[in-house]
Design a protein around this nucleic acid. Sequence first.
DNA 1: AACGGTTCCAACCGCGGGCTA
DNA 2: TTAGCCCGCGGTTGGAACCGT
Length: 316
Amino acid sequence: MGRAPCCDKANVKKGPWSPEEDEKLKEYIEKYGTGGNWIALPQKAGLKRCGKSCRLRWLNYLRPNIKHGEFSDDEDRIICSLFASIGSRWSIIAAQLPGRTDNDIKNYWNTKLKKKLIGIIPQSQRKPHQSNFSSMFQTCSSSSSPPSSFKGSTSSYYHPDGSSTGPESISFSSSLLSSSCSTSANSLLHQTQDSFVGHMETYQVNKDNLLLFGGEASCSSSDGSCNNPINHGKEAEFEFGRGTNMNCFYNGVEETQKLILSNGGSLRGWTEKQNGPWGENPLDYGFEEIKQLISTSSCNNFLFDENKTGERVVYY
DNA sequence: AACGGTTCCAACCGCGGGCTA
DNA sequence: TTAGCCCGCGGTTGGAACCGT
């Protein structure tokens, strides 16, 4: 059973916006704001448009400080590295590029940037698709030697049938420490992804506000954030992906935490979500393939060095 | 100039998730 | 707990603009 339509489709205008409609919408929002209700807005503003259409028009075109036109090399690099890091999460990528909208970036990627990358290396040099645990972490070519806290260990893995294996060890790439990454790479170390779920036995927050796994604390997450991480002594449910940070909430205030697995830190229950952004091709070219293209292209400030990362792959 | 193919981007669509009653 | 509502996201599409012949 499908959901009810958001508006009366027979009585709403579709297609390109006229300057008059733009003016009406802009004027209304500048005067009254959105009121937190896009569905009711078009009627109040005297527009025969769907609320979603109004929202899109405002966000992608009318709102102040929207940047149109050519993307700079820096923006290209950020998009490349973020795509390699988190896939087609356009809203997250857009958040790193002031003035750009997710739609803009999506279009730019699909029409230009991807082709640019694909044109860079010949087909014969491209690897077949693969899904690799290590791909969840970005590495930096400029990194210094990794500190001891780069290695984590798992107490066990569990499977959908309830069985478990282990212990196993996982080593993580040096990019887990943002200090070893380039400035541009740092800018993308922001958003946690949701394609790996797991269970962290313990962690702690050190004086530098870094989350150190292997200490005493707890973290709970189902969406890439963890709640009440300050509570100690409990195991932590978490979910995170290719980002290196976890978004946590302290008394309702979101903070981004850098994620470091320390020696003795305990991970268990790694599962890779089926049909997640890493399990399927985000575009005609697979994520891994695009990533490889990026790693061998002009975006190579953000190299993915598979040799420095763990090789453990856990599948259903 | 005319035509057909391609590119680009604004806009649409459906879905998932959060919120609330 | 559940159902309804809305928002925001990512994928897709339609058509205008552009380009080559």
